[in-house]
Design a protein around this nucleic acid. Sequence first.
DNA 1: ATGTCTTTTTCAAAAAGA
Length: 297
Amino acid sequence: MSVLKLATYNINGIRTRLPVLLEWLAEATPDIVCLQELKAVDADFPVAELRAAGYGALWHGQRSWNGVAILARGSVPLESRRGLPGDPDDTQSRYLEAAVHGVLVGCLYLPNGNPQPGPKFDYKLAWFDRLIAHAATLCNAGIPAVLAGDYNVVPTDFDIYNPKSWLKDALLQPEARARYTRLLGQGWTDALRARHPDQPMFTFWDYFRQHWQRDAGLRIDHLLVNPELAPRLLDAGVDRWVRGLEGTSDHAPTWITFTGYAATDDGDDYEMPPAPVITPIAPPKPAKAKSSKRKVR
DNA sequence: ATGTCTTTTTCAAAAAGA
C-alpha cells in the first residue's frame, strides 16, 4: 500500500518565494501540490527549477495578481479544466484542475472579497456560487477528487485566534460562511477539521502586528475530499515551520495523506518523463477600453 | 484606522491588493 501526500500552499509570489518553495518541497516531498497567488505571467513560471527538483507542473499565471498551479512529483498533471465554468468574461486566473496520481485535483484561489460590502465582495460570492455548481459534478464524479486551495473563508469562530477585530472582514461574513457550509453539504469532507476536531489548525498569519509571533492565525486554506477519497484519508496537517522561514509567504503549506494505488507503491522510484516542450500559454487578453468598466474585477 | 509586504509604473515614490 502506498501513501500519497497532497498539499495546498498560497505561495504569495512564486518568483520571490522560490527558495522557500524549493526548501519545503525537498523537506516535505509532497506528491501533489496546489499553489495559489503565483503573481507571475506564464512565461515567468519557474518550470526548469521545479523540474530539477523533481516536479512536473501545470500552471495558469496572470500579471501581478492571482495565478494557480498544480505540481506532481515525478510526473506531469493531466489538465482537465482551466477556469470555472459559468462566466466567460471572468479573466482572473483562479482555478485549475487536473488528474494526478489517480486523483482529480481542483486547485482554487477564491477571491478575498475585501472591502466589504462592495463589488469585490459581490465578485467573491458570485465566484463561490460558480464553484459550488461545478463542485457538485466533482463530488459525484464516482472517482476520487479533492478541492484544495485558499478559500478566503474562516468557516467558524473556532478557526481564528479571535474574531473581534475581523468581524467586518470579508473572510468572516455570514454569506461566505453559508456558502462554505453549502459546499460541504454536497458530501465533501473538510479533511483538516475532520482529522483535528479539537485544534484550530491555522494556515495563515498576516504580516501585521506580529501575528505570526503571537500565533494569531486563521484557517482559510482547505482540503475538501469527496466520498470516494474520504475513506482513504490517513492524516492531515499544517507545515507551520515554513511560515517561520526568512522571506516566506503569509500562508503555510497545508496537507493531507491518503492511501494511493498499488501501482505507485514505490514512492521514491518515480521516473520523470522526458522534458516536454514548453509552450507558454498566452495570458488572457486585456479588456479593451470600451469594455473595461463593464465587468467587476 | 492601523499594521506589512509585494508588485507595478517607470526610474522614485506612491498606489494597490491582500
